[in-house]
Design a protein around this nucleic acid. Structure first.
Length: 508
DNA sequence: CTGGGGACGGGGCCC
DNA sequence: AGGGCCCCGTCCCCA
């Protein structure tokens, strides 16, 4: 007995040592990434400082020249002015930094722009508007009071804006006409310091370093390997306290990213400013697996000296009704489930610890009865799944882009991205009348017939009209008497697959 | 319990 | 490349 206890004690101590070693290893990895990231940031800041100094020097030179030759200056502008004007012009949307319609209201009482002069943004009448982010970094402060880095954001809903203020996290934002607490939309253009305004970049520190999975794009890479598409899921735990998430500068236990905007708000209507086809969504979809962000609204994240406004009203939660994990998947293909589960079990790189996987694993039918039922009902699905598998692994139309969640193969990266919405629950297409969201544009269009009442599919044998072609086809079995779905337990036959499935419960 | 229809999810193909 | 369309499957509701 005593030996047994000693043995257990030894086992426990060994386990503890192993756990400590694992933690130390993980911390070391994080530290390395953090160091690299900080180095890059430092380099960028140095470049900014250099450019800022040059700008100031040019300005001084210009003022000196203006004092000496004012007339000549008015007729032919020195290069320094050109630089300044270009700088402002870019901010106005004339340059490549921005592309929207906006005008800058020059502060009254100032004949010249000052670097410390706040820029008042007058949102234009256009729907595509942008905001200026004023980043007051420590370096900027060091370079001189009021010296600011101005960056423009990409297209954005007029109601949506946000501010990133480095080192001045709680200060009021730069003057804009827009409230700063409105929900944030993902956007297509981002400043470099912003990294990414969507959830994509959330907690995405160094993908390559952490997982070794890169992003892929179309056209397919020339190599013949299968390509697991999408950004890696950086499985990073954090203190999910339910309060403001906070990380610290201590790199050993943080996933600190320099500036991460967390926006779960999805585009409204068809005006998907965030192109769902972009890889952003992939990253986004990956990032949503970072637990704890999905249900959080209006939270301030303090991440490595940066205040991050978390404004998410997207239904990107683990809501079974909204994602495939619930209704969609539960009603889905069992073989897909099994394939998926198998892929998770065999592909540890993919499975990791994401909540998605855990949930799906739980929801995957594990009892044989469920599988049998499915085989009775959906043999064709199995066949299709096998065909898919075959197409992905053999010849046919080469499908070298693999879904990072289920390993299903696709011929093009965009198709993978669209498909992966199945797993992520991302639904970029929103009905403007009822705010239902769809992963496919076609489904939205079809759905809108619900509102318009348009039923373009009419039966030739009766007066019935249908909004969907499939409904008409199914209806026509009423006239033909066709009942392709037969029960294996009794002679009953059914015109609809759902009817058979429902009927099978009678036998159980 | 069955028949029938409404509506959505998702993949493939074509233009 | 992206949108549109078609198709199949599924859930749900009502009679």
């Amino acid at each position: 007995m005593a030996n047994c206890m000693v043995f257990h004690t030894q086992i426990a101590s060994i386990m503890e040592v192993l756990a400590n070693a694992a933690v130390a290893e993980i911390c070391k990895l994080v530290d390395d990434d953090y160091a690299v990231f900080r180095l890059e940031i430092t380099q960028s800041q140095k470049e900014n400082r250099t450019l800022r100094r040059k700008l100031l020097e040019l300005k001084v030179a210009r003022e000196r020249a203006e004092r000496t030759m004012p007339e000549r200056f008015l007729s032919s502008r020195p290069s320094s002015v050109k630089i300044l004007d270009r700088y402002r012009g870019m901010a106005r949307g004339e340059g490549h930094l921005t592309g929207g319609h906006r005008s800058f209201v020059k502060p009254a009482g100032h004949n010249t722009w000052r670097d410390d002069q706040p820029i008042t943004v007058d949102e234009g009448s256009g729907t595509s508007t942008q905001h200026i982010i004023v980043i007051e970094s420590a370096d900027a402060e060091a370079a001189g009071p009021g010296v600011k880095q101005e960056r423009s954001e990409g297209k954005e809903d007029p109601q949506h804006s946000r501010d990133i203020q480095t080192g001045a996290a709680r200060e009021p934002p730069v003057a804009t006409d827009e409230p700063t607490t409105a929900p944030v939309h993902p956007r297509t253009q981002r400043s470099s310091t912003e990294v990414s305004g969507t959830l994509n970049a959330v907690l995405k520190s160094d993908t390559k370093t952490l997982t070794g999975l890169g992003r892929l794009g179309c056209p397919p890479a020339p190599c013949t390997e299968y390509l697991l598409y999408g950004s890696s899921r950086t499985v990073l735990s954090h203190q999910d306290s339910g309060d403001a998430l906070q990380t610290h500068n201590d790199p050993s236990c943080s996933y600190a990213t320099e500036t991460q905007m967390i926006s779960g708000d999805l585009p409204v209507g068809l005006d998907t400013q965030t192109n769902p086809m972009r890889g952003d969504w992939n990253q986004y979809s990956s990032s949503v697996y970072s637990e704890g962000f999905l249900d959080k609204k209006e939270e301030d994240l303090v991440v490595d000296e940066v205040t991050v406004k978390v404004e998410s009203d997207a239904p990107l939660t683990w809501n079974a009704d909204e994602t495939h994990l619930g209704k969609g998947h539960s009603q889905g293909n069992t073989s897909d489930f099994l394939d998926y589960r198998e892929s998770l079990e065999t592909n540890l790189n993919v499975a990791t610890q994401s909540p998605l996987h855990r949930v799906t694993m739980l929801m995957a039918p594990s009892n044989s009865q469920g599988s049998v039922l499915f085989e009775q009902v959906s043999n064709s699905n199995d066949q299709k799944a096998k065909e898919r598998e075959g197409a992905a692994t053999t010849g046919g139309k080469e499908k070298r882009f693999l879904c990072m969640f289920c390993n299903k193969g696709f011929s093009c990266s965009q198709k993978v991205e669209i498909h992966q919405r199945v797993h992520t629950g991302v639904k970029p297409f929103t009905c403007t009348q009822c705010h239902m969201r769809f992963a496919h544009a076609g489904n939205l269009k079809r759905h809108q017939r619900v509102h318009t009442g348009v039923k373009p599919f009419s039966c030739t044998q009766c007066h019935m009209c249908f909004a969907q072609a499939g409904d008409l086809k199914r209806h026509q079995r009423v006239h033909t008497g066709e009942k392709p779905y037969s029960c294996t337990q009794c002679p009953m036959r059914f015109a609809q697959a759902g009817d058979l499935k429902r009927h099978l419960k009678v036998h159980t």
